[in-house]
């Protein structure tokens, strides 16, 4: 009986992994085929890889787009981690009634769809002369209610005794945070880094509106413009998508162990 259950479980897991891996395999195969072969549904590796890559590099300034995306994602992630963890730490460690009311208000902002604030935000950045800069893309999401909440939740399981020990040893509040809190919470930071990096890397609507010239475009914008031609070349699009996906995949695999720990709660 037990054997049967394991078999069913395994069968289910195999089917689920095939389903979730299929798009990736399709993407990798598509990269090596011509557009019409992809449309005909060819499911094997072809010989068009180099040609697709050359065409893509001719058509777009992919290097610049990659650089723009990287700048935004890296600076944005570092900034978000620093600010959100400080906020989450502050809300939880220096707890008071008025602060939890403030936090409630903050959570409300999660209910607001981005489309509703887009136009005012656009006017604001235009007024500050920041449109068409990486700053414009980074700033609006540098602190998100979700990230603050994420750090606050994880801080709940942080052993306060460590802080008290630090205070006894004469550490300042700032050094308690950087010396004791930050190293202990590494898994939380890793999980937050993956989530934030992916958000910045894949963000589309706001960069589309805020970035105006060709040389400032990020990777998702370039991919999107490839896909809307009258006669889209799917082989080229697949190459672009693979290039766009790689950094997220890499970061995930690098931080995978910490990510899983972080999602379970950092300190056990």
């Amino acid at each position: 009986m037990k054997k049967l259950t394991t078999m069913v479980v395994h069968l289910f897991l195999i089917v689920a992994s095939v389903i979730s891996l299929f798009p990736f395999v399709w993407m990798l195969m598509g990269m090596t085929n011509s557009s019409s072969e992809i449309l005909k549904g060819k499911f094997s590796f072809g010989s068009m890889l180099m040609e697709n890559i050359h065409k893509l590099l001719d058509m777009t300034s992919l290097g610049a787009a990659f650089w723009n995306s990287a700048i935004i994602a890296i600076i944005g992630t570092v900034g978000t981690l620093l600010l959100s963890s400080m906020a989450g730490y502050g809300f939880e460690i220096y707890h008071s009634k008025s602060k939890s009311r403030l936090f409630g208000l903050l959570m409300l902002s999660m209910m607001m769809p981005f489309a509703a604030v887009m136009i005012p935000l656009f006017r604001m950045f235009s007024g500050m002369g920041l449109l068409n800069t990486p700053t414009a893309v980074i700033l609006p999401t540098i602190t998100t209610a979700f990230m603050i909440f994420f750090f606050l939740q994880n801080t709940k399981s942080f052993p306060r005794e460590l802080l008290q020990a630090g205070r006894v040893d004469g550490l300042s509040e700032w050094r308690l945070f950087t010396r004791i809190y930050m190293p202990t919470m590494k898994p939380t930071y890793a999980a937050a880094a993956i989530i934030t990096f992916m958000n910045y890397w894949n963000s589309f609507l706001w960069p589309l509106i805020a970035l105006q010239t060709q040389d400032k475009k990020t990777l998702p914008l370039v991919v999107s413009s490839l896909a809307s031609s009258y006669n889209p070349d799917y082989g080229i699009i697949m190459v672009a998508i693979v290039i766009t996906t790689l950094p997220s995949v890499l970061i995930f695999f690098l931080l995978q162990k910490q990510f899983v720990q972080g999602m379970l709660g950092s300190v056990k």
Partner: peptide, 20 residues
């Protein structure tokens, strides 16, 4: 400046609606 058709329309609408 190349962009997808839907993206172009979105950008244009955002600009015109914001009066920027």
């Amino acid at each position: 400046v190349d962009m997808a058709k839907a993206d172009l329309e979105q950008k244009l609408n955002a600009n015109l609606a914001a009066g920027v």
